[in-house]
Design a protein around this nucleic acid. Structure first.
Length: 586
RNA sequence: GCGCCCGUAGCUCAGCUGGAUAGAGCAUCGGCCUUCUAAGCCGGCGGUCGCAGGUUCGAGUCCUGCCGGGCGCGCCA
């Protein structure tokens, strides 16, 4: 509908140009809005206000001249000029009534568009280090990224979801060492556990698996493991130095082959756990991209070489630096450390170059807001490599805090004292978790109220929306029980019966759905859809309370059943985009 | 100190590329079940849009400066 209004205005503008009232060719995007107030009609355009200045004329007068030149349309009941020069459009009831058949026919496709023209996009999200199970902090990025991907698919983009696995860093070594030490303890060796090691219960689980699979293949006497190590923090030493020595010791004693076996086992176990957690959360990825593979394939050294040849690198204090300040970064960044190892940033340059070379029109990264300082250097690197940084969108997601009984739930990763995504899902359910994560704008801190998410009451927005869907399903069951029969085709000829205010309000809301999906997708803002669904559910509940659907007169009954089934379709489609189920009973 | 995000009703938050009288949920107060699920509906109360300037026909929205909160400023990932 909005698009049609837009087209009408465009033709009027063109006519004005032809008549010499406006300068032709002044192509501007014509603003069309939904009327905020009923008295303003259904759509409004301030286009005359915007043009009045350059045309040096009275905006109301200009609006009048535009209205005179608007082509006829079956959509339009009337046009009015109001206020300083708004053009208000009132849509015919019949146009809304016809929407019922349109929605019933389009069914699961209602709301989808071809806006994206099959452009290939990549959404990379979660990408949490595989050093433990996902916790509630990752959950928001997971839910958000998945819905953004869904919205982009619904608007005609070809979307691939990707998880970048940081399987190459020091943290992974600390993890492998932690598991090995637990393994040794399990074998009966007595040794201290590093204060900087990973302590979660899952470490023990993986160590036990390792032992049942490999027996005592990795067992070594405790004294050879700990002898001559520097003091740990508990003994007045440095915990970082200590843990690095433990890792070094593990590599030496085990040999590279056995060390890699353990490392690989730990990595596989954790990635698998993460994959399952996400799957249970309704989120799947097309690709799991390994950082290590970038190093093994030589991509990292190749990209460093490219930067060097292009003159963007220099040496200082034994390290190799990328001159990112040349591209608006605040300081230059190290790509190769003094010890010869490449940095995480170096991997990331290779990774982003690879993404670009895979041919995506746009590459979208969903990152935690704590990484915002990292964005400029990635863009800088892409520019240095002659790539267009505008193809990269970085979406920053603020943190989520859990509240239980009005109290903030404290969490810290290293100590193993955190609420996992799995625990959250088991506590509040997948639907509530998914909905709560995306109901706030992503750049807003999220207060996640566990008690509210669990509440089976009208306070809980998830149930409120799902209840609307279940009620409609219930009415359809009643239809059969009362001996009526309804098929979508039964509504087509009778939608003219839908004249009640509540019905027209509901129809207007349904007509907005495609616009909401489009706006939410283009702005990467799932919360817009969440709000819309709440409002739609409200309109339905109001209608439900005001009118009986299963009346004796068949035309009216069939018209109403058509309307509520159209409502059901939109509720179901919208919830599906959010990753929330649409139950038939509650 | 510098950079990014945020500041809207008692609380949690919307407010579409600047548009008409700033909205919703919760809380609170009061109504509605012999009728398709009351997990629902209707109404009341509640605001100097952090503060001060500026831009213009028009500012919660854009610009500048303050005040307040969060995050980031590693040869960690």
């Amino acid at each position: 509908m909005k698009a049609e209004i837009h087209a009408l205005l465009q033709q009027a503008l063109k006519a004005l140009g032809n008549d010499g009232i406006l300068e032709a060719g002044a192509e501007l995007n014509i603003p069309v809005e939904r009327g905020r107030d009923d008295s303003h009609g259904d759509f409004a355009s301030p286009v005359a206000l915007a043009l009045a200045r350059s045309a040096r004329c009275n905006p109301r007068q200009l609006a009048e001249q535009m209205v005179e030149r608007l082509p006829d349309s079956p959509l339009i009941e009337k046009t009015e000029i109001a206020g300083p020069g708004f053009i208000n459009f009132t849509i015919r009831d019949s146009a809304y009534q016809m929407l019922v058949s349109e929605i019933l026919k389009a069914d699961e496709h209602y709301g989808s568009s071809k806006l994206g023209a099959e452009q290939r996009l990549q959404v990379e999200f979660v990408s949490a280090n595989p050093t433990g199970p996902l916790h509630v902090g990752h959950g928001r990025g997971a839910a958000y990224g998945a819905v953004v991907a869904n919205l982009l698919r619904a608007t005609g983009h070809k979307v691939e979801c990707e998880y970048y696995v940081n399987d190459a860093g020091r943290q992974m070594d600390i993890l492998a060492a932690s598991v090995w030490l637990r393994y040794l303890q399990g074998c009966g060796e007595t040794l201290p556990f590093p204060s900087n090691g990973y302590r979660g219960a899952y470490i023990q689980t993986i160590a036990d698996e390792l032992r049942s699979k490999h027996g005592e293949e990795f067992r070594l006497p405790a004294n050879t493991v700990v002898e001559n190590l520097p003091p740990d923090e508990a003994d007045g030493g440095d915990k970082e130095l200590y843990i690095d020595s433990v890792i070094e010791r593990a590599r030496t004693l085990l040999g590279e082959r056995r060390y890699r076996l353990i490392h690989g086992h730990v990595l596989a176990a954790l990635v698998e756990e993460i994959r399952c957690d996400l799957l249970d959360f309704g989120i799947g990825f097309e690709h799991w991209y390994s950082e290590r593979s970038l190093m093994d394939s030589g991509s990292v050294t190749t990209v460093i070489e490219r930067l060097r040849e292009a003159g963007h690198l220099y040496e200082r204090e034994g390290a190799l630096w990328f001159r990112s300040t040349e591209f608006d970064d605040k300081k230059d960044r190290v790509v190769v450390r003094e010890n010869g190892q490449t940095t995480y940033f170096a991997s990331d340059i290779a990774y982003h170059l690879d993404k670009f070379e895979r041919g995506f029109t746009r590459v979208i990264n969903v990152w935690g807001a704590d990484h915002h300082g990292y964005v400029p250097r990635v863009r800088a690197a892409l520019q240095a490599l002659q790539e267009d940084p505008a193809r990269l969108d970085v979406l920053l997601v603020q943190f989520a805090n859990l509240y239980r009984g009005g109290e903030k739930v404290a969490m810290s990763t290293r100590s193993g004292d955190f609420v996992t995504l799995r625990q959250l899902r088991e506590e509040v359910g997948r639907d509530a978790a998914r909905f709560f994560y995306v109901m706030r704008k992503s750049d807003q801190h999220l207060d996640f109220d566990l008690d509210l998410a669990k509440a089976e009451s009208n306070d809980n927005p998830v149930y409120y929306i799902q209840y609307a869907h279940a009620r409609i399903a219930s009415v359809m069951r009643q239809t059969e029980e009362k001996g009526f029969r309804w098929r979508p085709a039964d509504s087509t000829e009778v939608t003219g019966e839908l004249g009640e205010d509540h019905e027209l309000v509901l129809l207007r809301r349904l007509s907005r759905y495609p616009e909401i999906v489009e706006a939410a997708a283009l702005a990467y803002e799932p919360h817009q859809l969440a709000y819309y669904l709440r409002e739609l559910a409200n309109d339905f509940h109001t209608y439900y309370n005001a009118h009986i659907f299963l009346v004796a007169e068949a035309p009216l009954r069939n018209a109403r059943l058509g309307l509520i089934n159209a409502t059901r379709i939109v509720l179901r489609n919208g919830l599906a985009l959010l990753g929330v189920s649409a139950p038939d009973t509650m």
